[in-house]
Design a protein around this nucleic acid. Structure first.
Lengths: 183, 183
DNA sequence: AAATTTACTTACTTGTAGGTAAGTAAGCAA
DNA sequence: TTGCTTACTTACCTACAAGTAAGTAAATTT
């Protein structure tokens, strides 16, 4: 039953996005899955191990998406990217970066490294997407593509945060404004 | 010694910004101040009371700043606003919104309300600042001022988050890009 | 001078956190 | 069929979380 391991990661992912890494316990995982907390420790000896598994899964998901999106023009690629966040906003979830970066100082060195890795991955992809899109005249913006990518990523992260507090319509308002500025 | 109460709020504020609301305990406050944890409960019976006090202080600080800034032209007002965040980024602190919104679902109803209040306050001010600044031709942007304010606030929040993970230079890159787009 | 309030401390409680050691039933491998 | 591995459970531990009840010394009010 490798199934259990995947269900633990799945639930941990949801808990990190909804409550935060420091606000869920092994009990929050073992109870709904109807196993004992020691069973969670069996697969993930420490909470750090579990956190890392969740981040790794996210990094892999991005890698798969990147491959799939690569066949489309850059403006559509960026739209796909936004859609990932849009789906999350509808569920009331935030993204891993938005959840883990506030807790950054409380995370183990190993988790901090993974969080860094993930953010670099995302920023690198958005930078390339914007850069290539501009060359093809699909995007129009001034300045360094990396700086523009920072703006895009930054807005994705915190529009999910704001959406939770001030209402879900906020996400669409921010992403529409962002796109208008770029196209 | 009303002093103790203020020092508790001060330290709680720092802990919320550095570690997160769910990642500090009364011990983290009582130890450095060399008092007992019950002394913290004396001033703030529950953790929620303490959280609310911290948010209230922030709302008051903004109110004072708003009054002071009002005598300046809007582009300078916005620069002052950015500077508040810039100072935080240099300290490695994040803002209250960036810290409390990921934990939003785990907060008491009373704290959730306060967080909402704070975010509405900030958004209202930035919206007015942008709107008035545009009328005076100090800002140049397309679309609704509120949507643009969302973008500005959203970037302030998450540039502090990103700065923590990918380096402090990120804050300046984002805010410079933002200002360039507006001026 | 007596009563009350302020600003705490002492000493506790209950609950839960993350984690571990030892056991076990079922499956598979030699 | 014996032994090893997998996938857990049982039963526990230590640490600490938030919170409280009762006490107290000093200051303030009446």
């Amino acid at each position: 039953m490798q199934d259990t391991k995947e269900r633990i990661i799945e639930l941990a992912d949801r808990l990190i996005r909804t409550r935060g890494f420091n606000a869920f316990s092994y009990k929050d995982i073992s109870d709904p899955l109807e196993i004992k907390n020691a069973a969670v420790h069996y697969y993930f000896p420490s909470k750090t191990d579990l956190g890392i598994a969740v981040i790794n899964q996210e990094i892999e998901k991005l890698a798969i998406n990147k491959l799939y999106w690569a066949t489309f023009p850059e403006n559509e690629q960026l739209q796909f990217f936004f859609d990932v966040f849009y789906q999350r906003s509808k569920q009331g979830y935030i993204c891993l970066m938005g959840s883990l970066s506030p807790d950054y100082e409380t995370l183990s060195a190993a988790m901090q490294e993974k969080v860094q890795h993930m953010s670099e991955d995302v920023l690198e992809w958005v930078t390339l997407c914007l850069e290539n899109g501009r060359k093809k005249q699909l995007f129009h913006f001034e300045g360094d593509a990396y700086n523009r990518a920072l703006l895009v990523v930054s807005n994705m992260i915190s529009s999910l945060l704001l959406a939770r507090v001030t209402g879900k319509e906020v996400f669409e308002k921010i992403s529409n404004q962002l796109l208008k500025d770029l196209l």
